Amino acid sequence: MLQAVLFDLDGTLLQMDTEDFMNEYLKELSQTVASVVEPGRFVRALLASTNAMLVNRDPALTNAEVFWADFRTRLGDCITDLEPLIEDFYAHKFINLSRVARPCPQARRAVQAALDRGLRIVLATNAIFPRSAIRDRMAWAGVADLPWELVTGYEEMHFCKPHPEYYREIAELLELKPEDCLMVGNDVQKDLAASTPGMRTYLVTDYLINPTRVDYQKLADGYGTLAELAGWLAGAGREKIEQEKQAVERVRKFVQVFDPNLEPIEFKEDTSTVEEAARTLGVEPGRIAKTLLFRAGEKYGLFVMAGDVRVNTKKVKALLGGGKPRMATPEEVEEITGYRVGGVCPFALATDIPIYLDESLQRFDVFYPAAGTDRSALPVTFAKLQAITGGTVVDVIK
Rank of each mutant, 00 (worst) to 15 (best):
Leu233Gly: 01
Leu150Trp: 04
Glu276Tyr: 11
Glu83Gly: 03
Gly222Met: 08
Phe347Cys: 08
Gln243Ala: 14
Val311Asn: 00
Lys324Glu: 13
Asp20Lys: 12
Arg326Pro: 14
Ala48Thr: 11
Glu149Trp: 08
Arg74Val: 02
Phe42Glu: 05
Thr12Tyr: 00
Phe254Gln: 11
Ala318Thr: 08
Glu38Ala: 14
Phe71Glu: 02
Glu83Pro: 01
Leu146Lys: 06
Trp68Glu: 11
Phe294Cys: 09
Glu24Lys: 12
Arg108Cys: 08
Phe303Ala: 05
Glu249Asn: 12
Glu38Met: 06
Glu83Val: 14
Ala236Phe: 03
Gln246Pro: 00
Asp191Pro: 11
Ala236Tyr: 04
Leu146Arg: 10
Glu87Pro: 00
Thr205Ser: 13
Phe347His: 03
Gln112Glu: 15
Phe347Trp: 02
Val122Pro: 03
Phe42Gly: 11
Ala234Asp: 14
Thr50Ile: 15
Phe129Asn: 02
Arg99Glu: 03
Glu65Val: 07
Leu97Val: 02
Lys27Ala: 13
Arg252Ser: 14
Phe303Met: 03
Leu378Tyr: 12
Ser35Pro: 00
Arg41Ala: 07
Lys245Asn: 09
Glu266Arg: 13
Leu361Phe: 03
Thr313Tyr: 00
Glu165Lys: 08
Leu262Val: 13
Asp20Met: 10
Gly198Thr: 02
Tyr166Val: 09
Asn63Ile: 10
Lys314Asp: 12
Phe159Pro: 01
Asn261Thr: 11
Met157Leu: 15
Thr205Trp: 04
Phe294Val: 09
Leu361Tyr: 10
Val5Asn: 01
Gln112His: 08
Met199His: 05
Asp352Thr: 09
Asn96Thr: 15
Gln112Arg: 10
Glu276Gln: 15
Glu175Ile: 02
Phe254Ala: 14
Ala64Ile: 02
Asp215Pro: 05
Lys398Pro: 00
Leu85Glu: 08
Ala139Leu: 07
Leu229Gln: 04
Glu179Thr: 13
Met157Thr: 06
Ser98Glu: 13
Thr201His: 09
Pro59Met: 07
Met157Trp: 06
Asp374Cys: 09
Leu229His: 02
Ala277Phe: 04
Pro346Val: 00
Tyr25His: 10
Asp352His: 08
Val100Met: 14
Val316Thr: 09
Gln106Ser: 06
Phe347Gly: 03
Arg252Pro: 02
Cys160Ile: 04
Val257Cys: 03
Glu244Thr: 07
Gly118Ser: 08
Asp221Tyr: 07
Leu174Tyr: 13
Asp81Glu: 15
Val143Ile: 13
Pro59Asn: 11
Thr212Arg: 12
Tyr339Ser: 12
Asp70Trp: 09
Asp70Ser: 14
